[in-house]
């Protein structure tokens, strides 16, 4: 089945099997391997991307479901070689260790901050409930998102 998807601002058209997930499509067809597959059943959040601006788990979306949509992956966050303030904040605050859950955390943070530019610690923790991190204990991820909010709000 042919689909056309705008990914990180660039339009892509491919013929895909209906059973291919968006995560597989990104990783295998487009070589956008920053979207990671941790559980493949929407439990861990490592595959989070945004679809039309809203965070979604790419393992539990079929590629055919996003036909005509705008998808942003972790690779689309930096602009003109400059990391997004959320990415910067993760680096500044040691919000990552092994890096595997990180793309999903960053993309979820996009959604958290879009709907709530000044979240409390509790709101951030609640917002991250769909994303597992096994390395950081979440402490510095929460700090990173708080810091990113401050940066974005200037």
């Amino acid at each position: 089945m042919n689909i056309t998807v705008t990914i990180n601002g660039e339009e892509h058209s491919h013929d895909v099997e209906p059973r291919i997930s968006l995560a597989q499509y990104l990783r295998e067809t487009l070589d956008l391997t920053g979207t990671h597959i941790g559980c493949d059943t929407s439990g861990c959040g490592a595959c989070t991307v945004t679809v039309d601006g809203a965070a979604a788990k790419a393992c539990t979306l079929l590629a055919v479901q996003v036909d005509g949509c705008e998808v942003t992956t972790i690779e689309g966050m930096a602009q003109n070689g400059q990391m997004h303030p959320i990415q910067e904040a993760f680096k500044e605050n040691h919000g990552l260790q092994c890096g595997f859950c990180t793309p999903g955390m960053v993309m979820t943070a996009v959604d958290i901050l879009k709907n709530n530019p000044n979240p409390s610690e509790e709101e951030i923790r609640h917002g991250l409930e769909g994303n597992f991190c096994r390395c950081t204990g979440y402490h510095n991820i929460v700090k990173s998102i708080q810091h990113a909010a401050e940066k974005i709000n200037g």
């Binding site: 990391m83 680096k91 595997f100 990180t102």
Partner: peptide, 23 residues
């Protein structure tokens, strides 16, 4: 000193190279 990590940039840009990323 709390030196920021040099490995972070690649992870944050989705450019880490995990085994499943290799083709």
């Amino acid at each position: 000193k709390p030196i920021k990590r040099r490995e972070d940039a690649r992870f944050l840009k989705g450019a880490g190279k995990y085994t499943d990323d290799i083709k």
